[in-house]
Design a binder for these strands. Structure first.
Lengths: 135, 135
DNA sequence: CTTTACTGTAATATTTATTATTACAGATGA
DNA sequence: TCATCTGTAATAATAAATATTACAGTAAAG
């Protein structure tokens, strides 16, 4: 797993705190303490999904794309998700083994079930909720 | 995230299917289709946790360390877990930023909460349940 | 008691994934 | 027309996961 979820959450928390005011990618990268190009890349992703709005040019920057109350951690999770949370093995199990032949399908089904559980929990927490924890 | 969870699950499913009969690491590695040394490494971990029993020497091999009914997917998850499922960023957030200063703590708390949710779900599924899905 | 077939484990190489860096085109306001 | 931003791609550096090799130790079987 990579660090995209915590980084996206950090970005959205900052924007939630800033309200209507535009925040620059340099400020965001400085708070997270990562490379600005990397921050802009994640911002770009979140913008494509409508979670962030941007303004180009001088005095440009970012705001949330919708209210902090409307964005949940499930949205963040889905925005950055690449692989099932419990991991995927890169092997191809032996098709001549009764277990090997079917296990990938069974694991897929399990993962769908787990995802539902996780999404339900994450969907119950908004960015507003999360950001309100900060002083 | 790595592929240890599906691999451990595969191993335990095979042993559940074999019952009292000893299964060799080569057979296990062959079913998963990974390197035998890698399979033995994971087996070794599961054995240290009591999920697997082993017998050395000629005609040695492995069986489950307790009944398939007593092992849940929560045990498997905890056996292979290294990092929080939603990932950890490697940056150290800016301590001069109100959000940066506190976010790691808040993320930790969130992750503990998510883990509880996940463990509850995983704890409701036994290896027996999982293995029974196979022909 | 020696061969054979296993487990147990470490050391190392290879491959893949993640993150950082650099660079620059395009937009907009001053 | 300059300064300050976003947007994005290409590439380099680093870190993590996986594969491979090797061999010591143990127990059964002849």
């Amino acid at each position: 797993m990579n660090g995209r979820f915590p980084i996206a959450l950090h970005i959205l928390t900052l924007l939630s705190k800033s309200g209507e005011e535009l925040t620059s990618s340099d400020y965001i990268a400085g708070s997270i303490n990562i490379n600005p190009a990397l921050a802009r890349k994640e911002i770009s992703n979140l913008r494509n999904l409508g979670l962030i709005s941007s303004k180009e040019g001088k005095s440009g920057g970012y705001t949330l794309g919708k209210s902090a109350k409307q964005i949940t951690l499930a949205d963040v999770y889905q925005a950055v998700k690449n692989q099932p949370v419990l991991g995927v093995a890169k092997n191809t199990p032996n098709p001549d083994c009764p277990v090997g032949k079917q296990i990938n399908k069974k694991i897929d089904e399990l993962y769908i079930d787990l995802d539902k559980t996780l999404l339900k929990k994450l969907g119950s927490i908004s960015i507003e909720d999360f950001a309100n924890q900060f002083d």
